[in-house]
């Protein structure tokens, strides 16, 4: 696999809801890219992650230097969403006609929807928005696959596997394996690899 970026810096937003493993996903992805010799800057908002809020990581990948930990508006190249309305939230601020979106379809209802004050857009509507406003998009059921594997939180790694398959970034299974060997406890590596492989099959 060539270590080339389609654009420098490549701007990635990984988003989800607190508790979905957003930060873990961004660290694993960043680790894989640093190992390939890139500068990676991650900007994170996880102070609210414990309390059901939106969580977002901005990754800037570059051959040249560190970049601002906040991506300028309208400048995301790739959006990876662990929750579909969070994909829309990020798209509405960082979207542009060349953006690619990979989204999980598992809904985590915001409190305002639970109370009945707001409506949650249905999956068809979200897919139509992706089709209209992105260059490429994928909607996959990562959580169901992770649940079949025994742990819904593995959906973050399923998403990373799917992202690798999209070939939007110079990452592959070997790089993933190297990264989790460094940062994941030995007894959890098998499950992570299986989740990655499952994700690869979903795109």
């Amino acid at each position: 696999m060539k270590n080339l970026l389609a654009k420098d810096p490549t701007n990635i937003v990984i988003t989800g809801v607190g508790g979905q493993g957003n930060v873990m996903a961004s660290r694993v992805l960043a680790g894989m890219l640093v190992a390939k010799g890139f500068y990676v800057t991650i900007g994170e908002t996880f102070g609210m992650s414990q309390r059901g809020g939106s969580v977002m990581s901005h990754l800037r990948v570059s051959k040249k230097s560190a970049w601002s930990p906040q991506i300028p508006l309208g400048q995301a190249d790739i959006i990876v969403a662990l929750e579909p309305s969070e994909a829309l939230r990020v798209l509405s601020r960082w979207g542009n006609p060349r953006v690619a979106v990979l989204s999980n379809n598992r809904v985590v209802y915001p409190i305002g929807v639970i109370t009945g004050d707001y409506d949650y857009p249905d999956e068809e509507k979200i897919k139509n928005i992706f089709a209209k406003l992105t260059a490429k998009s994928w909607m996959i059921d990562a959580t169901s696959v992770a649940m079949e594997m025994g742990n819904p939180v593995l959906s973050n790694i399923v998403m990373i596997g799917a992202l690798a398959k999209t070939a939007l970034l110079p990452i592959d299974r070997r790089a993933f394996e190297k990264e989790i060997n460094k940062n994941v406890a030995a007894d959890k590596r098998g499950a992570n690899l299986a989740a990655f492989d499952a994700g690869v099959k979903m795109v």
């Binding site: 414990q50 059901g52 939230r89 979207g95 406003l133």
Partner: peptide, 26 residues
Amino acid sequence: KTLPASYAQELRKVAAVIPPRDQTFC
């Protein structure tokens, strides 16, 4: 130069359909 005006207009429409995600107790 920012986004094409028509695209920015579409993004604003998207923003209007997203329910806010307020913090709450876990």
